[in-house]
Design a protein around this nucleic acid. Structure first.
Lengths: 212, 212
DNA sequence: GGCACCCAACCGATCGGTCGGTCGGGCCGC
DNA sequence: GCGGCCCGACCGACCGATCGGTTGGGTGCC
């Protein structure tokens, strides 16, 4: 995982996060991703960091306070990074490609946090910063929808239901964590490129073109 | 949820599952899907069924024994149902369509169990019947791969990397539980049809065809 | 001395699971 | 028909373990 501090916004009233806090967040993130939030005890996190549980509670008020910045940071940063990666003047197809590739790249860099974020979205009916998180996610989905709509209007895309097309794209990308192997032959960005190719041209052969 | 008994294989040495066991499985399934396995206590399940915890343990040896048939049954039944829904003599494209639509239909019928199964796959590093479950999943993925390969060989599909194309398809389908609303306008099968259309023809406009 | 950091020991609550016992309906010998 | 018996379904009370979180007291650096 790249520097986890980049995606966090802990530098509020308490100043920038300390080295120890980052260590706790990093270890907790990896544990949450592999065993789930409820499957990891505060003792586990402390032990993994080589400190006592009481020390951990010196840096964080409660268990939720460890999870929250991870989920929140990932949701926000994903959108911001993808948004920044999309060239303003490009063709819609190129924008879609940028959206998909940058999403995959982000996933690869912050894999554990990405997994935590996407699993927590489920089993969390109430509070945990839900509103603000959903706001970012909606903004992200809106960005994709705008790209697709622009493509349709400019004649680059041919889409019946934009919402459904968007969900197909996001589904393929968001499902990646479940099977992606960082030691595999292809980086996530290359996989996203392939997805893009299939998505744009379809898998169906085009006899009408071939037989001209 | 349709009759949960259809997907279970509890009728082993102990005979067919009793009404009470089915009730426990049904309620537990719904709770697991919404709050996660670790987020649901045995007390919760018992209370939801209107029985005491001791009574629940009279019907199941432990908590895992409630989860196991759900996850196992879904994984196995999904494959079997989809396999049966694919016509042997059809074109590859029609087979792919049947694969996707039947998967969606199955998800819609056994929505809670489907969600439980797909979430449990994560946070479960060890035992819980992992080997047998993965066997069914692999068989399912192999089925899709065979369809795609046949399509390529018969000139119906134009695919660079079959594994990646398959993962795109499965990703879109498996992600559905996260956003699908059973009270929405479209049934899951109709959504799968749309996915199929996009997948086959792609979203890119085809000026080469239009300008003939 | 004061502050940030750290710890062993402890707290009440809740976890998965067990125990001894109650209840009611079928089934037997008579 | 009927007392005695059995047994599956059920329950309240309890178990040790572990949960998230707290307390009070160190230790070392400014």
């Amino acid at each position: 995982m790249k520097n986890l501090a980049d995606i966090l916004e802990l530098d509020g009233p308490a100043g920038p996060p300390t080295e120890r806090m980052l260590q706790i967040l990093t270890e907790a993130c990896r544990l949450f991703a592999t065993r789930g939030f409820d499957g990891v005890s505060v003792r586990d996190i402390a032990q993994e960091c080589g400190i006592s549980k009481a020390t951990l509670y010196h840096h964080f008020p409660d268990k939720d306070a460890i999870l929250r910045p991870l989920v929140m940071g990932i949701t926000r940063s994903l959108h911001q990074r993808v948004l920044r990666a999309i060239p303003a003047e490009a063709e819609p197809a190129e924008k879609l490609r940028a959206f998909m590739v940058e999403s995959a790249r982000f996933f690869e860099e912050y894999r554990w946090a990405f997994i935590v974020s996407s699993t927590v979205f489920w089993t969390d009916p109430q509070a945990r910063q839900r509103r603000q998180r959903i706001e970012w996610r909606d903004r992200h989905e809106a960005l994709l929808r705008i790209i697709l709509e622009e493509g349709v209007q400019r004649g680059a895309f041919r889409i019946e239901d934009i919402g459904m097309a968007g969900r197909l794209v996001l589904g393929a990308l968001n499902w990646m964590p479940k099977w992606y192997d960082p030691k595999g032959p292809l980086p996530a960005s290359a996989i996203a490129e392939q997805f893009y190719d299939v998505l744009l041209a379809g898998v169906g052969a085009r006899p009408d073109v071939i037989t001209i």
